[in-house]
Design a protein around this nucleic acid. Structure first.
Lengths: 240, 240
DNA sequence: TTCCCCCTCCCCAGAAATGGTGAGGTCAAC
DNA sequence: GTTGACCTCACCATTTCTGGGGAGGGGGAA
Protein backbone atom coordinates (compact mmCIF):
# COMPACT_ATOMS: atom_id res chain seq x y z
CA UNK A 1 0.00 0.00 0.00
CA UNK A 2 2.85 2.37 0.87
CA UNK A 3 0.14 3.62 3.23
CA UNK A 4 -2.01 6.67 3.04
CA UNK A 5 -2.90 6.62 6.72
CA UNK A 6 -2.28 9.89 8.41
CA UNK A 7 -2.82 8.32 11.79
CA UNK A 8 0.03 5.91 11.19
CA UNK A 9 2.08 8.90 10.15
CA UNK A 10 1.37 10.47 13.50
CA UNK A 11 2.41 7.37 15.39
CA UNK A 12 5.64 7.07 13.47
CA UNK A 13 6.28 10.70 14.10
CA UNK A 14 5.91 9.96 17.81
CA UNK A 15 8.43 7.20 17.38
CA UNK A 16 10.89 9.64 15.89
CA UNK A 17 10.40 11.88 18.90
CA UNK A 18 10.85 9.08 21.40
CA UNK A 19 13.81 9.64 23.66
CA UNK A 20 13.79 6.48 25.75
CA UNK A 21 12.90 2.84 25.59
CA UNK A 22 9.74 3.81 27.43
CA UNK A 23 8.83 6.08 24.57
CA UNK A 24 9.21 3.17 22.18
CA UNK A 25 7.10 1.13 24.52
CA UNK A 26 4.28 3.65 24.24
CA UNK A 27 4.63 3.68 20.48
CA UNK A 28 4.33 -0.11 20.49
CA UNK A 29 1.09 0.20 22.36
CA UNK A 30 -0.21 2.88 20.03
CA UNK A 31 0.61 0.70 17.06
CA UNK A 32 -1.17 -2.21 18.67
CA UNK A 33 -4.27 -0.06 18.97
CA UNK A 34 -3.88 1.15 15.47
CA UNK A 35 -3.57 -2.28 13.92
CA UNK A 36 -6.01 -3.87 16.37
CA UNK A 37 -3.72 -6.80 17.00
CA UNK A 38 -2.83 -8.69 20.15
CA UNK A 39 0.85 -7.90 20.31
CA UNK A 40 3.68 -6.01 18.76
CA UNK A 41 7.28 -6.53 19.81
CA UNK A 42 10.75 -5.32 19.01
CA UNK A 43 13.42 -7.72 20.20
CA UNK A 44 17.18 -7.20 20.01
CA UNK A 45 19.62 -10.07 20.28
CA UNK A 46 23.17 -9.10 20.92
CA UNK A 47 26.32 -10.88 19.79
CA UNK A 48 27.16 -11.50 23.43
CA UNK A 49 23.77 -13.05 24.13
CA UNK A 50 22.18 -9.99 25.67
CA UNK A 51 18.59 -9.35 24.84
CA UNK A 52 16.36 -6.37 25.22
CA UNK A 53 13.53 -4.68 23.49
CA UNK A 54 10.08 -3.35 23.95
CA UNK A 55 6.60 -4.46 23.16
CA UNK A 56 3.26 -5.52 24.44
CA UNK A 57 3.92 -9.04 25.61
CA UNK A 58 3.04 -9.53 29.26
CA UNK A 59 5.79 -9.21 31.82
CA UNK A 60 5.15 -12.80 32.81
CA UNK A 61 5.83 -14.04 29.31
CA UNK A 62 8.96 -11.94 28.94
CA UNK A 63 10.24 -13.24 32.23
CA UNK A 64 9.36 -16.79 31.34
CA UNK A 65 11.07 -16.37 28.00
CA UNK A 66 14.32 -15.24 29.53
CA UNK A 67 14.14 -17.65 32.40
CA UNK A 68 13.58 -20.69 30.20
CA UNK A 69 16.06 -19.35 27.69
CA UNK A 70 13.50 -19.76 24.94
CA UNK A 71 15.80 -17.86 22.63
CA UNK A 72 17.46 -21.19 21.96
CA UNK A 73 14.37 -22.97 20.81
CA UNK A 74 12.02 -20.24 19.63
CA UNK A 75 11.35 -21.17 15.99
CA UNK A 76 10.71 -17.52 15.20
CA UNK A 77 14.23 -16.60 16.23
CA UNK A 78 15.71 -19.70 14.68
CA UNK A 79 13.86 -19.20 11.44
CA UNK A 80 14.42 -15.50 11.07
CA UNK A 81 18.06 -15.86 11.89
CA UNK A 82 18.52 -17.92 8.76
CA UNK A 83 16.29 -15.83 6.59
CA UNK A 84 16.71 -12.62 4.69
CA UNK A 85 13.17 -11.44 4.58
CA UNK A 86 10.05 -11.01 6.65
CA UNK A 87 8.27 -14.23 7.35
CA UNK A 88 4.87 -15.40 8.41
CA UNK A 89 5.03 -17.70 11.41
CA UNK A 90 3.12 -20.37 9.54
CA UNK A 91 6.07 -20.80 7.25
CA UNK A 92 8.45 -21.58 10.06
CA UNK A 93 9.39 -25.05 11.22
CA UNK A 94 7.26 -25.99 14.22
CA UNK A 95 7.81 -29.73 13.91
CA UNK A 96 10.32 -30.31 16.67
CA UNK A 97 9.15 -31.34 20.08
CA UNK A 98 10.70 -28.31 21.73
CA UNK A 99 9.00 -26.01 19.24
CA UNK A 100 5.57 -27.47 19.87
CA UNK A 101 6.06 -27.21 23.57
CA UNK A 102 7.15 -23.60 23.12
CA UNK A 103 4.05 -22.89 21.08
CA UNK A 104 1.81 -24.41 23.72
CA UNK A 105 3.39 -22.43 26.55
CA UNK A 106 3.42 -19.18 24.60
CA UNK A 107 -0.28 -19.59 23.95
CA UNK A 108 -0.88 -19.88 27.66
CA UNK A 109 0.82 -16.55 28.11
CA UNK A 110 -1.39 -14.81 25.60
CA UNK A 111 0.74 -14.98 22.50
CA UNK A 112 -1.47 -15.23 19.44
CA UNK A 113 -1.42 -18.08 16.97
CA UNK A 114 -0.60 -15.86 14.00
CA UNK A 115 2.58 -13.88 13.62
CA UNK A 116 4.66 -11.93 11.18
CA UNK A 117 8.29 -11.16 11.93
CA UNK A 118 10.76 -8.88 10.23
CA UNK A 119 14.46 -9.61 10.78
CA UNK A 120 16.75 -6.60 10.91
CA UNK A 121 20.50 -6.75 10.71
CA UNK A 122 23.40 -4.43 11.16
CA UNK A 123 27.16 -4.56 11.02
CA UNK A 124 29.07 -6.71 13.49
CA UNK A 125 26.33 -9.29 13.62
CA UNK A 126 23.66 -7.10 15.12
CA UNK A 127 20.35 -8.85 14.87
CA UNK A 128 16.90 -7.75 15.85
CA UNK A 129 13.38 -8.86 15.24
CA UNK A 130 10.19 -6.90 14.85
CA UNK A 131 7.11 -9.01 15.33
CA UNK A 132 3.40 -8.46 15.07
CA UNK A 133 1.20 -11.08 16.59
CA UNK A 134 -2.48 -11.89 16.71
CA UNK A 135 -5.13 -14.52 17.26
CA UNK A 136 -7.31 -15.07 14.24
CA UNK A 137 -7.86 -17.47 11.36
CA UNK A 138 -5.46 -17.90 8.51
CA UNK A 139 -7.45 -16.00 5.94
CA UNK A 140 -7.92 -12.90 8.02
CA UNK A 141 -4.23 -12.91 8.83
CA UNK A 142 -3.25 -13.34 5.22
CA UNK A 143 -5.25 -10.27 4.29
CA UNK A 144 -3.75 -8.29 7.14
CA UNK A 145 -0.15 -9.12 6.32
CA UNK A 146 -0.75 -8.58 2.64
CA UNK A 147 -2.12 -5.13 3.31
CA UNK A 148 0.47 -4.02 5.81
CA UNK A 149 3.61 -5.79 4.80
CA UNK A 150 5.38 -2.72 3.50
CA UNK A 151 4.52 -0.55 6.44
CA UNK A 152 5.64 -3.26 8.82
CA UNK A 153 9.01 -3.45 7.13
CA UNK A 154 9.41 0.28 7.53
CA UNK A 155 8.28 0.22 11.11
CA UNK A 156 10.78 -2.52 11.86
CA UNK A 157 13.44 -0.37 10.33
CA UNK A 158 12.49 2.66 12.36
CA UNK A 159 12.27 0.75 15.59
CA UNK A 160 15.74 -0.54 15.02
CA UNK A 161 17.06 2.87 14.16
CA UNK A 162 15.56 4.22 17.33
CA UNK A 163 16.77 1.39 19.50
CA UNK A 164 20.29 2.09 18.38
CA UNK A 165 20.08 5.64 19.63
CA UNK A 166 19.62 4.32 23.13
CA UNK A 167 22.51 1.96 22.90
CA UNK A 168 25.45 4.16 22.17
CA UNK A 169 27.85 1.48 23.26
CA UNK A 170 26.76 -0.72 20.39
CA UNK A 171 27.85 1.70 17.73
CA UNK A 172 31.20 3.27 18.41
CA UNK A 173 33.11 0.18 19.38
CA UNK A 174 35.36 0.75 16.44
CA UNK A 175 35.77 -2.35 14.37
CA UNK A 176 39.06 -3.85 15.46
CA UNK A 177 40.11 -5.28 12.15
CA UNK A 178 42.11 -8.47 12.03
CA UNK A 179 45.36 -8.68 10.16
CA UNK A 180 45.49 -10.95 7.08
CA UNK A 181 47.34 -13.65 8.96
CA UNK A 182 44.87 -13.48 11.79
CA UNK A 183 42.05 -13.84 9.35
CA UNK A 184 43.78 -16.85 7.83
CA UNK A 185 44.17 -18.41 11.22
CA UNK A 186 40.59 -17.80 12.30
CA UNK A 187 39.24 -19.03 9.00
CA UNK A 188 41.17 -22.27 9.00
CA UNK A 189 40.29 -22.93 12.61
CA UNK A 190 36.65 -22.34 11.76
CA UNK A 191 36.72 -24.96 9.07
CA UNK A 192 37.97 -27.60 11.40
CA UNK A 193 41.74 -27.65 11.27
CA UNK A 194 43.68 -28.16 14.48
CA UNK A 195 46.39 -25.72 15.43
CA UNK A 196 49.08 -27.99 14.07
CA UNK A 197 47.23 -28.36 10.78
CA UNK A 198 46.65 -24.64 10.44
CA UNK A 199 50.30 -23.94 11.07
CA UNK A 200 51.20 -26.48 8.46
CA UNK A 201 48.68 -25.06 6.00
CA UNK A 202 50.04 -21.57 6.47
CA UNK A 203 53.62 -22.84 6.38
CA UNK A 204 54.51 -21.27 9.67
CA UNK A 205 55.50 -22.73 12.99
CA UNK A 206 52.81 -23.60 15.44
CA UNK A 207 54.35 -21.07 17.79
CA UNK A 208 53.81 -18.31 15.30
CA UNK A 209 50.32 -19.43 14.70
CA UNK A 210 49.64 -19.17 18.38
CA UNK A 211 50.72 -15.55 18.34
CA UNK A 212 48.08 -14.85 15.69
CA UNK A 213 45.43 -16.64 17.59
CA UNK A 214 46.37 -14.78 20.73
CA UNK A 215 46.37 -11.39 19.06
CA UNK A 216 43.11 -12.11 17.31
CA UNK A 217 41.67 -13.26 20.60
CA UNK A 218 42.82 -10.06 22.22
CA UNK A 219 41.42 -7.85 19.48
CA UNK A 220 38.12 -9.64 19.60
CA UNK A 221 37.92 -9.61 23.36
CA UNK A 222 37.52 -13.37 23.29
CA UNK A 223 38.14 -15.75 26.14
CA UNK A 224 39.43 -18.66 24.10
CA UNK A 225 39.95 -19.84 20.56
CA UNK A 226 36.41 -21.05 20.03
CA UNK A 227 35.08 -17.76 21.29
CA UNK A 228 37.42 -15.83 19.03
CA UNK A 229 36.29 -17.79 15.99
CA UNK A 230 32.67 -17.32 16.95
CA UNK A 231 33.12 -13.57 17.35
CA UNK A 232 35.05 -13.24 14.14
CA UNK A 233 32.20 -15.00 12.39
CA UNK A 234 29.41 -13.06 13.99
CA UNK A 235 31.17 -9.80 13.20
CA UNK A 236 31.57 -10.84 9.64
CA UNK A 237 35.36 -10.70 9.83
CA UNK A 238 35.63 -14.18 8.47
CA UNK A 239 33.28 -16.11 6.27
CA UNK A 240 32.90 -19.85 6.45
CA UNK B 1 5.47 10.12 3.31
CA UNK B 2 4.79 6.44 3.05
CA UNK B 3 4.06 7.54 -0.50
CA UNK B 4 0.76 8.07 -2.20
CA UNK B 5 2.16 7.73 -5.70
CA UNK B 6 0.32 5.20 -7.75
CA UNK B 7 2.94 5.35 -10.46
CA UNK B 8 5.54 4.20 -7.98
CA UNK B 9 3.16 1.40 -7.09
CA UNK B 10 3.13 0.33 -10.70
CA UNK B 11 6.90 0.32 -10.94
CA UNK B 12 7.25 -1.73 -7.78
CA UNK B 13 4.67 -4.09 -9.09
CA UNK B 14 6.84 -4.51 -12.19
CA UNK B 15 9.73 -5.27 -9.89
CA UNK B 16 7.74 -8.00 -8.23
CA UNK B 17 7.07 -9.50 -11.65
CA UNK B 18 10.68 -9.35 -12.72
CA UNK B 19 12.13 -12.75 -13.46
CA UNK B 20 15.70 -11.91 -14.35
CA UNK B 21 18.41 -9.41 -13.60
CA UNK B 22 17.45 -7.75 -16.86
CA UNK B 23 13.99 -7.19 -15.50
CA UNK B 24 15.49 -5.47 -12.49
CA UNK B 25 17.62 -3.45 -14.81
CA UNK B 26 14.52 -2.14 -16.56
CA UNK B 27 12.92 -1.33 -13.22
CA UNK B 28 16.04 0.64 -12.26
CA UNK B 29 15.64 2.68 -15.38
CA UNK B 30 11.95 3.24 -14.77
CA UNK B 31 12.72 4.41 -11.26
CA UNK B 32 15.35 6.76 -12.56
CA UNK B 33 12.75 8.30 -14.83
CA UNK B 34 10.28 8.44 -12.01
CA UNK B 35 12.58 10.20 -9.57
CA UNK B 36 14.28 12.26 -12.28
CA UNK B 37 17.72 11.49 -10.96
CA UNK B 38 20.99 10.71 -12.69
CA UNK B 39 21.52 7.20 -11.41
CA UNK B 40 20.06 4.40 -9.40
CA UNK B 41 22.03 1.28 -8.54
CA UNK B 42 21.66 -1.97 -6.68
CA UNK B 43 25.00 -3.48 -5.81
CA UNK B 44 25.53 -6.85 -4.15
CA UNK B 45 28.79 -7.66 -2.46
CA UNK B 46 29.23 -11.29 -1.75
CA UNK B 47 31.04 -12.70 1.23
CA UNK B 48 33.61 -14.15 -1.12
CA UNK B 49 34.16 -10.83 -2.84
CA UNK B 50 31.93 -11.46 -5.83
CA UNK B 51 29.93 -8.51 -6.97
CA UNK B 52 26.95 -8.08 -9.15
CA UNK B 53 23.92 -5.91 -9.43
CA UNK B 54 22.02 -3.69 -11.74
CA UNK B 55 21.58 -0.04 -12.28
CA UNK B 56 22.07 2.89 -14.53
CA UNK B 57 25.77 3.57 -14.22
CA UNK B 58 27.55 3.51 -17.56
CA UNK B 59 29.25 0.30 -18.62
CA UNK B 60 32.53 2.16 -18.68
CA UNK B 61 32.22 3.15 -15.07
CA UNK B 62 31.22 -0.33 -13.96
CA UNK B 63 34.17 -1.79 -15.80
CA UNK B 64 36.50 0.82 -14.41
CA UNK B 65 35.16 0.13 -10.93
CA UNK B 66 35.85 -3.58 -11.13
CA UNK B 67 39.12 -3.17 -12.92
CA UNK B 68 40.54 -0.72 -10.39
CA UNK B 69 39.03 -2.70 -7.55
CA UNK B 70 37.39 0.44 -6.23
CA UNK B 71 35.44 -1.72 -3.84
CA UNK B 72 38.45 -1.39 -1.56
CA UNK B 73 38.51 2.38 -1.42
CA UNK B 74 34.98 3.44 -2.27
CA UNK B 75 33.92 5.44 0.81
CA UNK B 76 30.31 4.57 0.13
CA UNK B 77 31.03 0.88 0.50
CA UNK B 78 33.40 1.40 3.40
CA UNK B 79 31.00 3.68 5.20
CA UNK B 80 27.86 1.69 4.66
CA UNK B 81 29.55 -1.52 5.59
CA UNK B 82 30.00 -0.23 9.10
CA UNK B 83 26.69 1.53 9.37
CA UNK B 84 23.23 0.39 10.26
CA UNK B 85 21.16 2.91 8.42
CA UNK B 86 20.79 4.73 5.17
CA UNK B 87 23.29 7.47 4.72
CA UNK B 88 23.76 10.56 2.66
CA UNK B 89 27.07 10.60 0.86
CA UNK B 90 27.92 13.94 2.37
CA UNK B 91 28.14 12.29 5.77
CA UNK B 92 30.76 9.81 4.67
CA UNK B 93 34.47 10.21 5.14
CA UNK B 94 35.98 11.58 1.94
CA UNK B 95 39.10 12.87 3.59
CA UNK B 96 41.62 10.27 2.48
CA UNK B 97 43.64 10.84 -0.63
CA UNK B 98 42.32 7.67 -2.23
CA UNK B 99 38.74 8.74 -1.56
CA UNK B 100 39.20 12.12 -3.17
CA UNK B 101 40.81 10.57 -6.18
CA UNK B 102 37.92 8.12 -6.39
CA UNK B 103 35.44 10.98 -6.24
CA UNK B 104 37.21 12.83 -9.03
CA UNK B 105 37.32 9.80 -11.32
CA UNK B 106 33.73 8.84 -10.60
CA UNK B 107 32.64 12.34 -11.57
CA UNK B 108 34.39 11.93 -14.91
CA UNK B 109 32.31 8.84 -15.51
CA UNK B 110 29.05 10.63 -14.90
CA UNK B 111 28.44 9.81 -11.26
CA UNK B 112 26.62 12.69 -9.60
CA UNK B 113 27.92 14.64 -6.65
CA UNK B 114 25.00 13.80 -4.40
CA UNK B 115 24.14 10.34 -3.23
CA UNK B 116 22.01 8.40 -0.80
CA UNK B 117 22.75 4.76 -0.04
CA UNK B 118 20.80 2.13 1.83
CA UNK B 119 22.74 -0.84 3.21
CA UNK B 120 20.94 -4.17 3.24
CA UNK B 121 22.12 -7.24 5.08
CA UNK B 122 21.28 -10.89 5.30
CA UNK B 123 22.50 -13.92 7.16
CA UNK B 124 26.07 -15.11 6.58
CA UNK B 125 27.48 -11.73 5.86
CA UNK B 126 25.40 -10.98 2.82
CA UNK B 127 25.70 -7.32 2.07
CA UNK B 128 24.15 -5.15 -0.57
CA UNK B 129 23.76 -1.48 -1.29
CA UNK B 130 20.99 0.42 -2.93
CA UNK B 131 22.11 3.83 -4.10
CA UNK B 132 20.42 6.79 -5.66
CA UNK B 133 22.66 9.39 -7.14
CA UNK B 134 22.29 12.82 -8.68
CA UNK B 135 23.95 16.08 -9.55
CA UNK B 136 22.41 19.03 -7.80
CA UNK B 137 22.96 21.39 -4.92
CA UNK B 138 22.78 20.40 -1.29
CA UNK B 139 19.44 21.96 -0.57
CA UNK B 140 17.61 20.35 -3.41
CA UNK B 141 19.12 17.02 -2.46
CA UNK B 142 18.16 17.42 1.16
CA UNK B 143 14.56 17.99 0.16
CA UNK B 144 14.61 15.02 -2.16
CA UNK B 145 16.03 12.60 0.36
CA UNK B 146 13.76 13.91 3.07
CA UNK B 147 10.72 13.33 0.90
CA UNK B 148 11.67 9.91 -0.38
CA UNK B 149 13.66 8.33 2.37
CA UNK B 150 11.01 5.82 3.35
CA UNK B 151 10.23 4.73 -0.15
CA UNK B 152 13.90 4.32 -0.89
CA UNK B 153 14.33 2.04 2.10
CA UNK B 154 11.47 -0.08 0.86
CA UNK B 155 12.78 -0.14 -2.66
CA UNK B 156 16.18 -1.22 -1.39
CA UNK B 157 14.47 -3.99 0.48
CA UNK B 158 12.53 -5.16 -2.54
CA UNK B 159 15.53 -5.05 -4.83
CA UNK B 160 17.39 -7.23 -2.40
CA UNK B 161 14.51 -9.63 -2.07
CA UNK B 162 14.35 -9.93 -5.81
CA UNK B 163 18.07 -10.33 -6.24
CA UNK B 164 17.99 -13.27 -3.87
CA UNK B 165 15.51 -15.06 -6.03
CA UNK B 166 18.22 -15.27 -8.65
CA UNK B 167 20.71 -16.72 -6.20
CA UNK B 168 19.53 -20.26 -5.73
CA UNK B 169 22.41 -21.45 -3.56
CA UNK B 170 21.02 -19.76 -0.48
CA UNK B 171 17.68 -21.27 0.36
CA UNK B 172 17.43 -25.04 0.18
CA UNK B 173 19.10 -26.18 3.33
CA UNK B 174 17.01 -28.12 5.74
CA UNK B 175 19.49 -30.16 7.69
CA UNK B 176 19.97 -32.04 10.88
CA UNK B 177 18.66 -29.97 13.75
CA UNK B 178 20.31 -29.90 17.15
CA UNK B 179 18.50 -30.86 20.32
CA UNK B 180 17.83 -28.08 22.84
CA UNK B 181 20.63 -29.26 25.08
CA UNK B 182 23.00 -29.37 22.16
CA UNK B 183 22.00 -25.87 21.21
CA UNK B 184 22.65 -24.77 24.77
CA UNK B 185 26.07 -26.34 24.71
CA UNK B 186 27.03 -24.86 21.37
CA UNK B 187 25.73 -21.45 22.31
CA UNK B 188 27.56 -21.23 25.60
CA UNK B 189 30.75 -22.46 24.01
CA UNK B 190 30.34 -19.81 21.33
CA UNK B 191 30.15 -17.05 23.89
CA UNK B 192 33.39 -18.06 25.47
CA UNK B 193 32.67 -20.47 28.30
CA UNK B 194 34.98 -23.41 28.82
CA UNK B 195 33.55 -26.91 29.02
CA UNK B 196 33.64 -26.83 32.78
CA UNK B 197 31.85 -23.50 32.86
CA UNK B 198 29.23 -24.63 30.40
CA UNK B 199 28.56 -27.74 32.44
CA UNK B 200 28.23 -25.59 35.52
CA UNK B 201 25.96 -23.12 33.75
CA UNK B 202 23.70 -25.90 32.55
CA UNK B 203 23.85 -27.62 35.94
CA UNK B 204 24.99 -30.90 34.49
CA UNK B 205 28.18 -32.86 34.84
CA UNK B 206 30.98 -32.14 32.48
CA UNK B 207 30.74 -35.72 31.31
CA UNK B 208 27.19 -35.18 30.21
CA UNK B 209 28.12 -32.00 28.51
CA UNK B 210 30.71 -33.87 26.54
CA UNK B 211 28.07 -36.18 25.23
CA UNK B 212 26.16 -33.19 23.87
CA UNK B 213 29.22 -31.70 22.29
CA UNK B 214 30.08 -35.02 20.75
CA UNK B 215 26.61 -35.60 19.38
CA UNK B 216 26.42 -32.06 18.07
CA UNK B 217 29.80 -32.50 16.50
CA UNK B 218 28.62 -35.70 14.88
CA UNK B 219 25.41 -34.16 13.58
CA UNK B 220 27.27 -31.21 12.19
CA UNK B 221 29.98 -33.31 10.65
CA UNK B 222 32.53 -31.28 12.55
CA UNK B 223 36.08 -32.26 13.32
CA UNK B 224 36.35 -30.57 16.69
CA UNK B 225 34.50 -28.30 19.07
CA UNK B 226 35.51 -25.06 17.41
CA UNK B 227 34.47 -26.43 14.06
CA UNK B 228 31.15 -27.56 15.47
CA UNK B 229 30.44 -24.13 16.90
CA UNK B 230 31.43 -22.48 13.65
CA UNK B 231 29.14 -24.77 11.67
CA UNK B 232 26.27 -24.30 14.07
CA UNK B 233 26.67 -20.56 13.65
CA UNK B 234 27.01 -20.54 9.91
CA UNK B 235 23.94 -22.73 9.61
CA UNK B 236 22.06 -20.41 11.87
CA UNK B 237 21.39 -23.16 14.39
CA UNK B 238 22.58 -21.01 17.22
CA UNK B 239 22.16 -17.30 17.69
CA UNK B 240 25.25 -15.52 18.91
C1' DT C 1 5.57 -53.17 22.64
C1' DT C 2 9.75 -52.15 20.68
C1' DC C 3 12.91 -48.99 18.78
C1' DC C 4 15.16 -44.76 18.76
C1' DC C 5 16.30 -40.34 20.46
C1' DC C 6 17.09 -37.42 24.32
C1' DC C 7 18.96 -36.59 28.89
C1' DT C 8 21.87 -37.91 32.55
C1' DC C 9 26.09 -39.97 34.74
C1' DC C 10 30.91 -42.42 35.08
C1' DC C 11 36.42 -43.89 34.02
C1' DC C 12 40.86 -43.36 31.74
C1' DA C 13 44.98 -41.92 29.17
C1' DG C 14 46.96 -39.41 25.57
C1' DA C 15 46.70 -35.33 22.69
C1' DA C 16 46.01 -30.57 22.23
C1' DA C 17 45.42 -26.00 23.71
C1' DT C 18 46.62 -22.22 26.88
C1' DG C 19 49.03 -18.28 29.24
C1' DG C 20 52.93 -15.79 30.04
C1' DT C 21 57.34 -13.93 28.47
C1' DG C 22 60.97 -12.82 25.23
C1' DA C 23 63.30 -11.63 20.70
C1' DG C 24 64.29 -10.25 16.02
C1' DG C 25 63.00 -8.66 11.36
C1' DT C 26 60.20 -5.58 7.73
C1' DC C 27 57.56 -1.83 6.36
C1' DA C 28 54.62 2.09 6.42
C1' DA C 29 53.41 6.19 8.73
C1' DC C 30 53.91 10.27 11.48
C1' DG D 1 63.82 8.24 12.31
C1' DT D 2 61.20 6.72 15.79
C1' DT D 3 56.94 4.54 16.60
C1' DG D 4 53.85 1.09 15.90
C1' DA D 5 51.69 -2.77 13.55
C1' DC D 6 52.74 -7.02 11.46
C1' DC D 7 55.18 -11.47 10.80
C1' DT D 8 58.29 -14.91 12.47
C1' DC D 9 60.33 -18.08 16.01
C1' DA D 10 61.19 -20.23 21.00
C1' DC D 11 60.40 -22.46 26.06
C1' DC D 12 57.91 -23.28 30.19
C1' DA D 13 54.24 -25.75 33.12
C1' DT D 14 49.43 -26.32 33.48
C1' DT D 15 44.87 -26.79 32.09
C1' DT D 16 41.65 -28.43 28.94
C1' DC D 17 39.95 -31.31 25.33
C1' DT D 18 39.50 -35.54 22.96
C1' DG D 19 38.30 -40.31 21.86
C1' DG D 20 37.42 -44.63 23.29
C1' DG D 21 34.65 -47.35 26.56
C1' DG D 22 29.73 -48.39 29.40
C1' DA D 23 24.93 -47.56 31.80
C1' DG D 24 20.18 -46.30 33.07
C1' DG D 25 15.55 -43.78 32.68
C1' DG D 26 12.08 -41.21 30.01
C1' DG D 27 9.14 -40.41 26.13
C1' DG D 28 7.49 -40.36 21.42
C1' DA D 29 6.69 -42.99 17.21
C1' DA D 30 5.63 -47.04 14.54
Amino acid sequence: MLGTQTKLEAILSDLEQAATLDGMQRVSEALREYYRVDHLVYHWVDSSGDQYGCGTYSDEWQQKYLQENYLRIDPVIQGCYQRFHPVDWKRLDWSSKAAREFLRVSGEYGVGNQGFSVPVRGPRGQFALFTINHSCDDEEWAVFTQDNRRDLILIAHYFNEKALEFEPDRQPEQQQALSPREVDAMTLLAIGYSRAQVANKLSISEHTLRVYIESARFKLGALNTTHAVARAMSRGLIVV
